[in-house]
Write a protein that binds this DNA or RNA. Structure first.
Lengths: 210, 210
DNA sequence: TTTGAATTGTAACTTTTGTTACTGTCAATT
DNA sequence: AATTGACAGTAACAAAAGTTACAATTCAAA
C-alpha cells in the first residue's frame, strides 16, 4: 500500500501524513459494478482512489437514477467528507465503474489531520472545489442542453473515464444514467450512427468521432 | 460590527476568532438587486452574511440564467471559499435578493484560520456540506420535476427567503431564473391561480396556499 | 393628455421528449 | 435444435415545453 500511496499522493501529502495514512488506512479492492455506498447509509470511512473509477448517482422518489459524476485516480468523495463530519446519511449512491483500488481512512482521523496537516486541508478543499465544479457541469448539462447533446457528453465522458472508445453499455443502462427512456436513447444513438459519429453493436457502442 | 458578529456567530465561532474577525473584517451593505460577484471575477474576500439574502446564479453560453440557490443569514459562499484558495475565477454570479449586510474577510486570513481555529474549520466544512446539499436539490428539481412543480418550489422558496407571501417579480424575471420562457411561466401561473393557490397582480404574485 | 414601454393573457403552432406497442435479432441454456 | 430472455429498431401517438404573434392593460414620462 505504501507504494500505491507514494506513487499517487507523494506530491500532494507531506511524508509524515503518508506515513500515517499507511498506518491507519486499509486497502480495498472492488469489482466493476460493486456498490460502495447506498443512499441513506452512514459513512464510517473515507476513500482515496488509487486506480479505477467510481460513478456517483442520485435517485428520485420513484427510484430512477441520474449520473452525477465520476471519481478517478487521486480523487476522494466530497459527499463522504461532510457525511463523516456531520454524521449525516449519504445523499448519493456510489458504484464502481471499473475495477477499483481504494484506501479507506477511518473518519476519526479526518478531524485530527485537518488540524495537523496543511497538505491534508488543501487536499480536502481542493476536493470540495472539484466536486462543486463537477456538480455545476452536471447542472449545465441538464438545464442548458437537449438530450442529444447530453448523450454526446455522456459518451465522451465515458470514453475518457474508461480510456476506451468502445463503450460496453446497453441503451437501457445509458437511459437510466441520463434519466430518460430507452427508446429515446436508441433514437438518438441511431441518429449519431447515421451521422457517422458512432457505430452501434449489441451491448456496445464504438465511438468514431465525437 | 462586533454586535452583529456576536448576535449571529457567537455559538459558531470561538471568542478569539470573533475578535479577529472584528479586527480584519469590513462591514458591507448592499442594496437589493446589486451585483456582488460576476462570472469570471477573481474573488479577493469572503462574505459572511449578517442579514438579507443573496441569490446565486449560473449562466449558459447564450447568457441565459438559472437560479442555483439563496444564501441567508449565517451562510457564506462555498464557491468563494475555493476560489480564494485556488485563485480561480468565479463560476457563478451573486446578486442581492434583498438589502443585505455582510462582513467581508480578506482571503489571506482564510488559510491562517483553518489551521488555527477548529470552529472555523467546522464552519467551512459545514458550509460546503450545505452548499453541496443545495446543489443536489437544484439538480433534483431540474432533472426529476416538470416545470409546473419547479415553479411551485420556486415560489415557496422565494416566500421563505423574503419572508413575504407577496412576491414582487414579473413573469419574465421568474422565467429567467427557472431558465424557461415568459409564456410558459404565465401559462403555469394562470393554472395555479385558477386552482386558487395564488393570486396574480401586475408585478407581483400573492401566495395563498401552496 | 398622449405616447410608449413594460407587463400580462392567450391562441396557434413546433419541437422535444416520453410512452406504448410490436418486431426482429442475438446468445445462452436446456 | 428449440426455447427463452435480453436487446435493439421503429412506428404511432401523447405530453411537456418552447416559440411566435398579437391584443389588452397599466403606468410613467414626455
Amino acid at each position: 500500500m505504501l507504494t500505491d500511496l507514494k506513487e499517487n499522493f507523494t506530491n500532494i501529502f507531506e511524508d509524515a501524513l503518508i506515513e500515517e495514512i499507511n498506518e491507519v488506512g486499509t486497502l480495498k479492492e472492488v469489482k466493476e459494478g460493486e456498490k460502495l455506498i447506498e443512499i441513506g447509509d452512514y459513512v464510517r470511512s473515507m476513500p482515496l482512489l488509487i486506480s479505477g473509477a467510481i460513478k456517483i448517482l442520485r435517485e428520485d422518489d420513484d427510484g430512477d437514477e441520474l449520473l452525477l459524476y465520476f471519481l478517478e485516480r487521486g480523487d476522494t468523495c466530497a459527499m463522504t467528507l461532510t457525511c463523516c463530519l456531520g454524521q449525516t446519511k449519504s445523499e448519493i449512491r456510489a458504484i464502481a465503474e471499473l475495477d477499483t483500488t481504494l484506501i479507506m481512512i477511518p473518519i476519526q482521523k479526518m478531524e485530527e489531520w485537518t488540524g495537523k496537516y496543511k497538505s491534508w486541508r488543501n487536499f480536502v478543499f481542493q476536493s470540495y472545489h472539484e466536486r462543486l465544479t463537477e456538480m455545476l457541469e452536471t447542472i449545465d448539462s441538464i438545464a442548458f442542453y437537449n438530450m442529444d447533446e447530453r448523450l454526446v457528453k455522456y459518451l465522451q465522458n465515458k470514453k475518457k473515464v474508461t480510456k476506451d472508445s468502445l463503450i460496453n453499455s446497453t441503451h437501457q443502462e445509458i437511459a437510466y444514467e441520463l434519466h430518460t427512456s430507452r427508446v429515446v436513447v436508441s433514437r438518438l444513438l441511431k441518429k449519431l450512427e447515421s451521422m457517422g459519429k458512432i457505430e452501434l453493436y449489441r451491448n456496445s457502442i464504438k465511438i468514431v468521432s465525437l
